[in-house]
Nucleic acid binder design. Structure first.
Ligand SMILES: [Mn+2]
Ligand SMILES: [Mn+2]
Ligand SMILES: [Mn+2]
Ligand SMILES: [Mn+2]
Lengths: 216, 216
DNA sequence: TTATTTTTTTAGACTTGCCTAAAAATTACA
DNA sequence: TGTAATTTTTAGGCAAGTCTAAAAAAATAA
C-alpha cells in the first residue's frame, strides 16, 4: 500500500490534472502547502513506483495505475463526506477536513459497504461525482455562472471552492446545490453577476460567480 | 495533538496497566510488536509531554492526562467497531484492524455525533465497555469461565482475546455475547472445562476457557 | 554473596518526509 | 538574441520513528 503522504500527492496531482494536462512542481507545492523541493523528492518516489510519469523540468502526470489509486482516494473522500452530511448531519462546510483524514482508511470492503449502506450516492455534498468501485466517474459538464450568456438559466450543481467561508456564504445566500438560478446580467465594470433566484435578484462578485457551477 | 505512534503507545500502556500497575518496557514492546529500544525512546518522549510517569528501569504508568487521552482512543476504537458491526454488518471477528485505523480520526465532534447516531451504545461487539465522552468507563467485573466453581452459571459478556481465529471459533460454537452458560466441571488433568449451554454439553480447552468472560 | 541470566538502556544508524539555500535549467522580455 | 526573472532541481540537514548491537542495571540462581 501507499503512505498517507503518497496518497495526498496522488490526489493533488489528480485534481490539478483535471484542469490541465501536465502538472508543474510549483502547482503541487501550492496545492499541498509544501515546498517545491519536497515535491521533487516525492514525485521521484512516485515515478519509481510507476504511479506518475516524470522527467526533470517537464512536470508530471498520473500513470494508469496512479490514476486508479487517485480515483479510489477521491471515492473514499466523497463517500465519507456524504456520510458525515447525510447520517451525522454535519453541514457541507464542516466536512472537508474530517474527510481528509478518513479518506486514508484503507479497507476496500469497508468503503464498499459504506457505499451500500448509504444507497450508492452518485454525488457528494458539494455536487462532485463519486467514482464507483471500479473507478468510473461521470465527468460533469458544469459551467461557472460567470461564463454563461445573460438570460441563461441553470441548476446549481457544484462549487469550485470548497473552503468553509465560501460554502457558508453560499448557504447564507441560499445558493445551494439543486437551486435553479438565472443569470440576468454580467456588469462589465467589475464582472459582478446579477442572478435571479426565487423571483428575487441577487448580486454576486466575480470571485463568487467563478465558483458557482451550474448545469444548463 | 498526538501522533499516530504516540496514540498507539498510550493505548497499549492503558491496556497493559488495566491488568497490572506499572508496565514494563518489554510488555509494551510485545504488545506493539516492536523492539524494547524503540519503546524506551518513545516512553521518554511521552514522559517529556507529561503523559506517562517514567524513571529508568522502573517501568511506566499513565498520568491523569495520559489516561484521559488513552480512554478517548479506546472510546473511538469501540464506537467504530460498533458502527462496523451494527451498521455495516461486519462480523465481530472482522472489525479490529479497521477500527485500529479509524480510532485515529481526530475530530471529537465526529465521534460524539457517531455515538448519538448509534444511540449511545455502552458495549462494543466484543462486550467491552465504551467510555462516555467524559472518559467515564464501567469497570466490568467479569470472570473467565476457567476461574469459577463447578455448577456456576453466567452470561458470556466479554472475551479476553480479540484475534480473528479465536472469535471465529466462538462464533462457530455459538459461544457469543449474551449466551447463558453453566460451568459443569473443570477436569483436573488438563483444565478442560465442560460447559452446558442450551441443554447441550460442550468441552473447551484451558486456553479457550481463560478467554471467555462471564457475568455471574 | 558471587555468578549468570534477563531486562533495559545507550549508541549509532537507517528511512520517510520535510526544510533552506544554492545551483541549474527554463521562460520571459527588452 | 542576450539578460533577467522564474521555476525546478540539487545539496545538505533535521525530526520522527524504527532497528541492531553493545553496555549497564536488575533479577535470579548457585
Ligand atoms: Mn488526506
Ligand atoms: Mn466534496
Ligand atoms: Mn491504532
Ligand atoms: Mn473490541
Amino acid at each position: 500500500m501507499n503512505t498517507l503522504a503518497e496518497e495526498n500527492y496522488l490526489k493533488a496531482i489528480y485534481k490539478l490534472s483535471c484542469a490541465e494536462g501536465n502538472v508543474s512542481t510549483n502547482q503541487i507545492a501550492t496545492e499541498l502547502a509544501t515546498k517545491a523541493s519536497s515535491v521533487t523528492d516525492m514525485v521521484r518516489k512516485l515515478a519509481d513506483k510507476a504511479l506518475v510519469n516524470y522527467a526533470r523540468y517537464q512536470g508530471v502526470s498520473l500513470t494508469h495505475t496512479g490514476e486508479k489509486i487517485a480515483l479510489n482516494i477521491v471515492r473514499r473522500h466523497r463517500l465519507w463526506e456524504y456520510f458525515l452530511v447525510e447520517k451525522l448531519h454535519f453541514k457541507w462546510d464542516e466536512v472537508h477536513d474530517m474527510a481528509e483524514e478518513m479518506e486514508h482508511i484503507s479497507s476496500t470492503e469497508l468503503i464498499n459497504r459504506l457505499d451500500a449502506f448509504m444507497g450508492y450516492p452518485t454525488r457528494d455534498p458539494h455536487g462532485d461525482p463519486i467514482p464507483d468501485c471500479d473507478g468510473n466517474i461521470k465527468a460533469s459538464a458544469l459551467k461557472p455562472v460567470s461564463a454563461v450568456k445573460a438570460n441563461t438559466s441553470g441548476v446549481i450543481s457544484g462549487v469550485g471552492d470548497h473552503s468553509t467561508p465560501f460554502l457558508q456564504y453560499l448557504e447564507q445566500q441560499k445558493l445551494t446545490i439543486g437551486k435553479r438560478v438565472m443569470v440576468k446580467e454580467i456588469i462589465g465594470y467589475d464582472n459582478t453577476v446579477i442572478l435571479e433566484m426565487d423571483n428575487k435578484q441577487l448580486h454576486i462578485s466575480r470571485d463568487v460567480a467563478n465558483n458557482i457551477l451550474i448545469a444548463i
